[in-house]
Design a protein around this nucleic acid. Structure first.
Lengths: 338, 338
DNA sequence: TTGAAAGCGCTAACAT
DNA sequence: ATGTTAGCGCTTTCAA
């Protein structure tokens, strides 16, 4: 900047003004500065500016796994909205690991991002609380953090989605419905299980606890869970997989055991995927407004940042609606048991 | 930091030393500083530090589309390696748009990222050249930039992959093989077409130019291209889709036209996807070491950053091998024509 | 072992 | 319309 100023025969203040299109500057200075700037290949230093202005125009985004289409679609929503609003985003993948999550949280705070969007692991409630206390602007996506009010959150009605999926299976006549569930440290894990339970209650059907497999949201867990359920002496006639990865894993497990869908058992996923209608059979799933979660989350965060210095904006909870997409992977049980 | 110093009754220099575990500091000061620091909820300011140290430990990553499993897997490789090496990454999606790419390039440079990893659109050769001239450390992924030597690049042997896919179809007896190709502004577009051509030459089969559909790597393009090819009077008996999205779109187009795979036409994709073996039929594809491209790319960049100030490290080109995965979507043509 | 002070590149208040 | 200057939070040389 000094160099540009020298070359253009003006002060660095003028250079600053020209660069920012801000204050006054004569046409002549403007021309000279511009010229000198690209002669020298000058690029503004965003760090220095942010140090002065106390804002980085950067937000942090933490998701469990970028290769899961749910999260990558969600991230896409964030990126798109962020771009429109002039923010850029530092992305980090936590792999559902509490340690990694803490590490990234620190990192983002050290970089003084303007705000953070996160699908939290659920295992660092205290740290998140601390971050909020320190004044960090946070919007949670997809999952809540129990005990942490005071945070904006954008999510889907998981109880409802799971309820409808389970109800659909029950109405088809299934008596033994297995569930491949995520960790109970997450609200998505808990709520989807709750929906499953409530549907049974409302239909006055008992639940065999053997049919509830609680693991993680990852492939291996789904695979093991599906194997276990499918090889029971009295196996379920339907399986509800609590996310897309678990559902995919179930398909593989079924193939290996030579089980046919929906002949041998019906399958519903929570979380639809683009290729669900290309599989054999086409997959019945609870669709979520994935992209929207990210997009709206970024909007909320931006709104918070506008009023930041004002009084504490009170926490808002945005709940989006899931939708059951019926496809061919579900059918009445062949040998219904009573 | 000043506050911490005050509270601990030491100078800010000492605080700095303690925080960095660097220089000398008495056990007593160390203790006092640590105490004061977390009493006050002190967090180092990475921006200020980077300003001083002239390095940000941040790299930029530019990919066309995060929802494409190829790029998200690649990004995953980058993230994983970056984490291991202590870098964090600013992610941006260009949507194959030259303007957006330029914008992000500027942004990353303004933020003084230590280096940039990019799957370039191919439309901003000049800007990339300029960035390099200005001393930015760059590693290109998946695609080269013609006319730009001097850049590290990590990619797959696209000619070979396309050659093998096409050869496989030719050997099955197909005489009319359609190709859904990406933009020729990208080396992936050009090279995959080149492989297709060379396979024909080597087998001494003519190519009907009507069968070559050059579009973009996006869904709509694939859909239109597939529709066009499939509704020809003398349609191809096989289609080679130059990426996974194009292949997926072809499946949808085929379904709408009531065409069966592989009965009515065979299908091969460039770029395997996780669910390729769950579709009906299972999809034959050219698999790429996607994650590795990202991982190795980040490694290369880190290596460059180590020697940066030394003499110019000369550009290295890393070429990984693709592999044809034979699955059920290919079969001999039903009515081979001569 | 510790402190004082310069300077990284920028913006903005103030002075001209 | 333009220039001078303080200061954002940090590291590091130099001196004590």
């Amino acid at each position: 900047m000094r160099d540009v100023a020298k070359k253009a025969n003006v002060s660095i203040a003028t250079v600053s003004r020209v660069i920012n299109g801000d204050g006054y500057a004569s046409l002549e200075s403007r021309r000279r500065v511009m010229h000198a700037a690209d002669e020298l290949g000058y690029k503004l230093d965003a760090r220095a500016r942010s140090l002065k202005l106390d804002r980085t125009n950067t937000v942090g985004l933490m998701i469990p796994d970028i290769t899961n289409p749910f999260y990558s679609d969600l991230a896409n929503g964030v990126l798109t909205c962020a771009k429109a609003l002039g923010y850029h985003v530092i992305l980090s993948a936590t792999d559902e690991d509490a340690g990694i999550e803490r590490e990234y949280l620190d990192l983002l705070m050290e970089n003084r991002v303007d705000g953070i969007l996160a699908v939290p692991t659920g295992k660092n409630i205290e740290q998140w609380g601390e971050a909020i206390t320190l004044g960090t602007q946070i919007v949670l996506l997809d999952r809540k953090l129990t005990g942490l009010s005071d945070v904006d959150v954008v999510l889907v009605d998981n109880v409802k989605g799971a309820y409808e999926a389970t109800k659909y299976l029950l109405d088809l006549g299934h008596q033994r419905i297995g569930i491949l569930c995520g960790p109970l440290s997450t609200t998505t894990g808990r709520d989807r299980l709750a929906g499953y339970r409530r549907a049974h209650q409302d239909s006055e059907r008992p639940i065999d606890d053997e049919l509830i497999y609680i693991g993680t949201f990852k492939r291996e867990s789904g695979y093991q869970g599906a194997q276990k359920l499918l090889s029971m002496i009295n196996p379920p006639t339907a399986i509800f997989a609590a996310n897309n990865v678990l559902g995919e894993a179930t398909m593989f497990a079924a193939r290996e055991q030579g089980k046919r869908i929906p002949d041998d058992f019906s399958l519903v996923l929570f979380d639809d995927v683009p290729w669900a209608s290309l599989t054999n059979p086409q997959l019945c799933a609870v669709a979520q407004p994935t992209y929207t979660i990210g997009f709206v989350g970024m909007q909320r965060l931006a709104e918070r940042l506008q009023v930041s210095s004002n009084e504490e904006a009170e926490a808002r909870e945005t709940i989006l609606q899931p939708e059951l997409i019926v496809r061919r992977s579900c059918a009445p049980p062949v040998r219904p048991r009573n």
